[in-house]
């Protein structure tokens, strides 16, 4: 009797994973809100046209690469190759930080090429880019912190255990912020 209950519940998605998916839904709504505000504002007068900083291409490459290493590290974890797992997750976190740095280089580039992002005299077109991209960077950095926490715990744990849920959750989130950036990048290039 008890066994049937458990096996029935096993088939369901792990509640914490489910939490992440619903959370992703709400993050999507936030960016949907911002990008629709962008569209609404764009159709009005006084909108500055400018092209994206070239370094965004590099950051896009970096974040795509980090998704790959993230994917491989989850695989390594499942195969119990802990050394490989630790290396890959460190690389992933490092690429995350690199991504954030490149984005800030992009902002710097715009500012030095006559597109003021914030402050007096800034045009909403540029401010939108700064706010939306900046918020996305914060989400990436949140992911980096999560990876660091998982990483630390791998060392401090008393009982060795191979629960993949946490790392899978981190992986899903990581791919999500990756896809989110790809969406934003395409959005800013096309709209």
């Amino acid at each position: 009797m008890m066994a049937t209950v458990v096996s029935q519940e096993r088939k369901r998605l792990h509640p914490h994973k489910f939490l992440l998916w619903v959370g992703i839904g709400s993050i999507i709504m936030m960016f949907a809100g911002l990008t629709s505000a962008y569209i609404v504002r764009r159709s009005a007068a006084n909108w500055l046209e400018f092209s994206l900083p070239p370094v965004f291409w590099y950051s896009t490459f970096v974040i795509l690469l980090s998704s790959l290493t993230m994917h491989l590290s989850v695989k390594a974890f499942k195969a119990r190759e802990m050394m490989r797992y630790r290396t890959l997750i460190t690389i992933t976190a490092g690429l995350g930080v690199l991504f954030a740095t490149l984005q800030f280089f992009g902002f710097y580039y715009l500012n030095t090429h006559g597109v003021q992002l914030l402050g007096q005299g800034s045009n909403p077109a540029a401010s939108f880019l700064a706010v939306i991209t900046g918020l996305h960077v914060l989400h990436v950095l949140g992911g980096v912190i999560a990876l660091l926490v998982i990483f630390m715990r791998a060392y401090s744990m008393r009982i060795k255990s191979y629960n993949v849920t946490t790392i899978e959750i981190a992986g899903t989130y990581w791919h999500f912020v990756d896809i989110l950036w790809v969406y934003l990048f395409i959005f800013f290039n096309l709209v």
Binding site: M29, A37, V131
Partner: peptide, 14 residues
């Protein structure tokens, strides 16, 4: 709530 509060938050951020 989960679908609409984030939009309010984006309004607040701006």
């Amino acid at each position: 709530g989960v679908l609409s509060f984030p939009v309010l938050l984006s309004g607040f951020i701006l």
